[in-house]
Design a protein around this nucleic acid. Structure first.
Lengths: 208, 208
DNA sequence: TGTTTTTTTGACTGATCGGTCACAAATTAT
DNA sequence: ATAATTTGTGACCGATCAGTCAAAAAAACA
């Protein structure tokens, strides 16, 4: 993992910390909207150090996307697939609750935390994926993770009488609702709209 | 509407034509990703003419958004509210068919026409609405139009036993699915995923 | 104490950015 | 004609863009 002794002048920064700061800026401003000077300011590093350690702007963006996948996407996936605590995971309607919790988290990000940045994955899909194939690949991979996690949650809904293909269909439908809500959130839509989008989606999951 | 005689040198361009070209570029590249030189190339006008006729880049963007609202959004709204022909509007399940047709149109834009630009409204919501209040207002207004149109379609579903508030909820849920599918389309998602998102959403509309 | 290796630093580059402007061109009004 | 008014044109502006580089600094070696 790490060299015990490293020759040469040691780095003054933690790679993960810098990447987190870089991700934040790209998240807030997008790829084109972010200048290298923004990253210099946010990271406290000089331009030369950034280029030396991470490569050019595009590479940095891709690494920020990967970091997002490892942190934020992983959190959502863990929530959906029941690998993290706090959501009554043992309840009989665990799958339903997990999906409800994720959609509620999208709403809370806006209404509680005032976070208008939305989802970096969604942002990247909209403004960079069609223009850059490496970004497209990264986004696609993260989307597949989320789809599988939704599928896992759907399958954890007892009495959800559904064929295998219907489970997949439902997962993809929920994926779509999730990103739609992210878009609505960024547009400044009132909480009531997102609440309805959420409960409208959940309604179809309750055959009880 | 128009002056019969206009003093001074007459314009060589049609305002609507130029606006359509401008909209196309912003649609494809986004606000930050579009340079004035791109617009000069696309419109055939010189920079000075563009500034003289439409104002600065931001104003031009807002006018392109308004143009999108008057053309593309209006088409979707007309389709949903049954004001345009071609979709068996007299059938007993007219509302259902209209919604299905709109979601299918999102898929066809990608699979038939190879159009990866998505929806300018969605793009604007994601990358400009949080940063510019005028853009946010424009996006919000268009979103409200679409919500009302979805609501009209939902209410045109016979046997859709639902309270008033449930109709609204369903409309907002569909709005969310619609934008989610737009995001998936831009991410390069295969048609199968969007098909499932669509049919998953439609399933909840068929209490038959 | 040097030598070597790596990182930090900030000045520097050419290109491009959004935006302006003076002047030529085209039309109506007199 | 000629004056008045508007539009088209392209050179021009300072600012900022992404990216580079040589030299200083900080560490491990010898």
């Amino acid at each position: 993992m790490s060299e015990v002794t490293a020759i040469g002048r040691p780095r003054k920064f933690e790679e993960q910390t810098v990447l987190a700061a870089v991700m934040d800026i790209f998240w807030e401003k997008g790829f084109e909207g972010t200048a290298m000077s923004d990253l210099v300011e946010a990271t406290g590093l000089q331009k030369g150090s950034l280029y030396g350690a991470f490569g050019d702007k595009r590479t940095l963006y891709l690494k920020a996307l990967a970091f997002y996948d490892e942190t934020e996407v992983a959190l959502a996936v863990d929530l959906l697939s029941g690998k993290c605590g706090g959501y009554e995971l043992e309840a009989p309607d665990a799958g339903y609750l997990r999906i409800a919790a994720l959609l509620q988290a999208v709403i809370d990000a806006v209404s509680v935390k005032g976070d208008r940045r939305g989802c970096l994955l969604c942002n990247a899909a909209v403004d960079q994926a069609p223009l850059d194939s490496a970004t497209e690949r990264s986004v696609t991979a993260s989307l597949e993770c989320m789809e599988e996690a939704f599928l896992e949650a759907v399958r954890a809904i007892p009495d959800f009488v559904a064929s295998v293909s219907e489970g997949r269909r439902t997962a993809r439908h929920l994926l779509s609702v999730y990103f739609g809500m992210r878009v609505l959130a960024k547009s400044g839509a009132p909480v009531a709209i997102m609440d309805d989008a959420k409960s409208g989606a959940l309604k179809g999951l309750h055959p009880l």
